[in-house]
Design a binder for these strands. Sequence first.
DNA 1: AAGGCGCACAACCGCGATCCC
DNA 2: GGGGATCGCGGTTGTGCGCCT
Length: 327
Amino acid sequence: MDMAHERDASSEEEVMAGELRRGPWTVEEDILLMNYVASHGEGRWNSLARSAGLKRTGKSCRLRWLNYLRPDLRRGNITPQEQLLILELHSRWGNRWSKIAQHLPGRTDNEIKNYWRTRVQKHAKQLKCDVNSQQFKDVMRYLWMPRLVERIQAASNANANAVAGDDGGHGGAAADTPPLSSSWQLGADDDGICASPEYYLTAGDHHQLLNNHAAVPEVSSTATAGSSSPSSDSGTGTTATTQPWLAPVGGAEWFTTACDASSSAAVSMHDAVLPGQQQQQGCLIGDTWVSSELPELGVGDFEIGSFDVESIWSMDDSLWYTQTQGV
DNA sequence: AAGGCGCACAACCGCGATCCC
DNA sequence: GGGGATCGCGGTTGTGCGCCT
């Protein structure tokens, strides 16, 4: 756009003339901006920048405020719940980062976009498939998302166990855990998704709210193995014999009924178990998971172990693999 | 110890949409 | 209604840091 180019050109001139700063923000600039917004409010970023005495473009001020200084920002690693929501919403809306961010309170579109590019796209690359391909979407839907659900449930159960332990129980809470039948669903708003998403796990007749962030360890792509695993979090070894996350992925009947208001058709994942398929029953070869159970996905010799599962599930891989293999 | 490399995240850029005078 | 100003979004780049060799 010509207008934009003119603006940019003038900005460039200002930068060249030393009237505008670029690059990382200093603490002093942050304080200036925060103080000014606190007393005058947001908006009118160009004039705000001038009035606040910031040698920055209004655009830069806005971005700094929205992505870094806003008080309601939620810092820290993306939780499994958030990962699950990102995967689901992206499958529905694509790269509509701001729209996706609206459903992750405290998270910015930039943060989600970066997460997607650095984590998810990396896996697509390692799988040698396009991130927008049906093949990769199926991998997400049928493999990653169910496991995220299980992770969330596992952490939740571990937390429940810990609570039960406080009441005098001795790791027996898991015995009361209904057969694993996890599902998750999103409530509906105008977009078909709750503005404040609530996740539920259904286990038998029990429905458990999952968006209790405090109950679930955060995921860190750089987390050391086991550092955020349920067992290590529960601390007292209450899950030594009855870890709920040991159930094979295929055992979890999971689905979402996030209704798409525009189509009125529920986007169902009830068919997560592919037709005629007992879900993946891969085998572990060395440290590589090889599944021959995903022919429909077109992911021949799908290798989970060859890429960084940790960044998706943040689970103690060796423990998890060992357990799922019944070793 | 040091240089290379990759990753994660902050910041910038381009441009269409919307607002407002 | 027109045009400038501003906002907001998605894509891209820059940079700091940790890990590896």
